[in-house]
Amino acid sequence: MAEKRPKILKVENLSKNFGGVQALRGVSLNLRAGEILGLIGPNGAGKTTLINIVSGVVREDAGTIFFEEHLLNELSPWQRAALGLARTFQHIQIFAGLTVLENVMCGAHRLRKTGFWETFLRLPRAVAEEDECRRQALSILSELGLADKANLPAENLPYGEQKKVVIARALASRPRAILLDEPAGGLNEKETEELGEIILRLREKGLAILLVEHDLNLVMRICERVVVLNQGEVIAEGPPCEIQNDPRVLEAYLGK
C-alpha cells in the first residue's frame, strides 16, 4: 500500500516568525516517494513560507527537515538542490536573457561533471556532456510541447508557457522530489488541465511532488493526500474526499 513507500521528505515541527507574525507553528508533514501531496490553505496560511524554508531560501526558527537521509537545516539552497530537491516559484523567476532551451539546460546544472578547466579548454568530455545536456533538455521540452519554442528568448513567451518552462527547468535536474509553488496560478482552464496531466505523468516516473495550489479542483483531482494549513498550523490531513467534507477546512476557507 501507499504507506509502505519510503518517506522522502520529512518536515518536523517547523516554526517561523516574521517580526511578530507567526507564519508557521510546529508544522510537520511527510512526502512519500512517488506521491502527489497537496498543500492548501487560505492566503497567508504559510504555504509559500514552508516551501521557502524547505528549499533553504528562508531560514527556519525551529524544526528539522530531512530529505532522504540528509538533514537539510544547515545546507544552502544550492546544496539542497544538488541533492535532488527541486522547486519552482510562484513568480516564475525565469532567466531573462537566456533562451528557453538554455533555461532548461541550466536546470541540469547539478548533473554536470566537468569543471572550469574542461569547459574552458573545451575538452572532449565537456563537449560530450554539453551535447547530452542539450539532448535531454530538448526531450523534456518536446514532452511538454515546447520544442518549437526552444530557441526563443524565454522572457518573450506567454505567461502560461513560461510556467511550463520553469517546470521543465526543474525537471532537467532529474530531481527525486519537486516542490511546486502555485503552478496553476494565472493559467486558464485549458492550461490548468494540461498542467494536471503533466504533474500526473511526473508521478508515474516516480517523482515525489509537493503541490502548493489555490486551484482546489486541480488539487482534489490529482493529489492522493492533502494537507491543509491555516494560520501556520496543520488543521487537517487526509485523502481529498475526506478533506472536502472536513468542517475545520470549510471553516478555515469560509469563516464560521
Partner: peptide
C-alpha cells in the same frame, strides 16, 4: 558551456539559480 549559463542564470536571478544547484 554550462559554466557560462550558470553565470548568466546567476546574474538574472540569484535565488532561482541557487535553487537549481548553482553555487552563487
Amino acid at each position: 558551456s554550462g559554466e557560462g549559463r550558470a553565470l548568466r542564470a546567476l546574474a538574472s536571478g540569484e535565488i532561482a539559480a541557487a535553487c537549481l544547484g548553482i553555487n552563487p
